[in-house]
């Protein structure tokens, strides 16, 4: 097992005001599995989140780029969960 830190942005802060999650995941955990773990964590900590699609409408990113769902999480110093965007 390894510890993964995920920074949260935008609407996720409504559910996790600190904007950070720390999760224990399998060594070979991929992006898809991590998103499922985040969903479980958010549902267990915030009943409002039950049934929300926000995690699955979001993408995970490393410090420099967006990761594909089928990628494995290697040695990312920090990960970020990016919900739908609204700049401009």
């Amino acid at each position: 097992m390894k510890t993964v830190k995920v920074k949260l942005f935008g609407g996720f802060k409504k559910f996790i005001p600190s904007g950070y999650l720390e999760l224990q995941v399998q060594e070979n955990c991929g992006v898809n599995l991590l998103k499922a773990e985040i969903q479980k964590h958010l549902e267990s900590h915030s009943p409002e989140f039950l049934g929300s699609q926000l995690v699955f409408d979001s993408v995970l990113a490393s410090d420099v780029e967006i990761l594909n769902d089928n990628e494995s999480i290697v040695e990312c110093a920090s990960l970020a969960l990016l919900p739908p965007v609204c700049g401009g």
């Binding site: 967006i66 919900p83 739908p84």
Partner: peptide, 28 residues
């Protein structure tokens, strides 16, 4: 920018409520 830049907007309303504005899902 509106479609692809990782930027999020929270609106503060006159009635005191706030809301994160729904946006566009990023493409992997």
């Amino acid at each position: 920018i509106k479609l692809r830049a990782p930027i999020w907007k929270k609106e503060f309303y006159l009635d005191g409520e706030t809301e994160w504005v729904k946006g566009h899902a990023l493409c992997q």
